[in-house]
Design a binder for these strands. Structure first.
Lengths: 194, 194
DNA sequence: GCATGCCCGGACTTTACGTCCAGGCTGGAC
DNA sequence: GTCCAGCCTGGACGTAAAGTCCGGGCATGC
């Protein structure tokens, strides 16, 4: 069945089978990354998602290290007695589709194309996202962050113009488990350097 | 030559030849609207555009009555003595392209797609865009706006959460050619109504 | 035990937000 | 024309955030 799905979706989708007991990869079809059998699954973030249906999650968005955007769905397969036996994930690389869409909409478009859709539903989501990304990439949770971590996160948030919206500083401070003064202090420090 | 362009661009482009002397249509290939030879050109808006090249204008955006969006280019053809003899316009219907692009980007997209706007890299662009859209749809320029126009624009901006970003009110006021007080006055008025 | 570096909480200044009001302009009724 | 009503304006004003500053506490390393 996994091979079938892989063939159906062409070269831009990978299918991964995880073992929830050991939290490791069982097998990968058409891998998009270097992952292979035996590698850790890093599936812990599934519980934070609401299932769209019983035992079915997604589609949700993932980011690869090289910037490719994936649409992913996951399904938990259970034994007869109800214990999870395997987790099936399908990851679809959206970049070729997006590139094609960009080509189409650029065709005959006015010289000043629609401004970058750098929108965000809710800027506080952006805060969480930036922090979450940093936590995952460094492996240090918010409480265990070093000063450098905080500087990096604040730099990202500042460049994302988060502090142009009202009431942002206290929210960021709370998210970073740090006082408002510290946020301003770190901000002036990194703004001074450039 | 006009027939050639029409054939090249398929069923979604029309080619129109105008006579600048009489300001009337000379001939239309593959008409997208009901216009025909002898109809008024309504070409007066050309002078308001900056030529991208000598005697070549566009591409710029046009709106048809039924909502289709066109990309248009115009060229002024001159006699040997330099007097304009004909104006050539090519109008390309972008809706099929946009529909195709929408299909592509919807494929495998996260279920919660383009979350409503709140935050923008450059939110002032959004201000200009909202105002510009309103101006085009009503035909009244900013200076000739009625009170209702201003209320509508402010409602749109408020719902786009533009006023959640700092320093927004003065910028909006300036864009609407209105005092800061007026902005706040109109805002409280429409917020009171719900 | 001491020094250093960082953070905290709170006091304080500055900036911007939002409200209010007296006066002036405009367009319509008469 | 005059009058009136509605709207806008510019400025004053009070309040709420945005930022700044500092004394003290709590670690870590020596």
């Amino acid at each position: 069945m996994c091979r079938a799905v892989t063939l159906l979706l062409g070269p831009y989708a990978e299918v991964v089978l995880h073992d929830p007991a050991t939290d490791r990869v069982l097998e990968v079809w058409n891998p998009l990354t270097a992952r292979g059998p035996g590698d850790p699954s890093a599936l812990g973030d599934l519980d934070r998602l609401d299932p769209t249906d019983r035992d079915v999650y997604g589609p949700y968005e993932k980011l690869l290290a090289d910037g490719r955007r994936l649409s992913s769905v996951s399904a938990v397969l259970r034994d007869d007695d109800g214990t999870p036996s395997v987790v099936l994930c399908v990851n679809l690389d959206r970049t070729p589709l997006e590139r094609a869409a960009a080509v189409l909409s650029a065709f005959g478009a006015p010289t000043t194309p629609p401004p970058e859709p750098l929108f965000e539903a809710d800027w506080s989501q952006r805060v969480d996202h930036v922090i979450g990304t940093h936590v995952r990439s460094t492996g240090r949770s918010v409480d265990r962050m070093t000063r450098q971590d905080r500087l990096a996160v604040l730099r990202a948030l500042d460049e994302a113009r988060v502090f142009a919206v009202r009431r942002a500083a206290p929210v960021v401070a709370q998210a970073l488990r740090v006082s408002r003064s510290t946020v301003y202090g770190l901000l002036t420090e990194l703004r001074a350097k450039g």
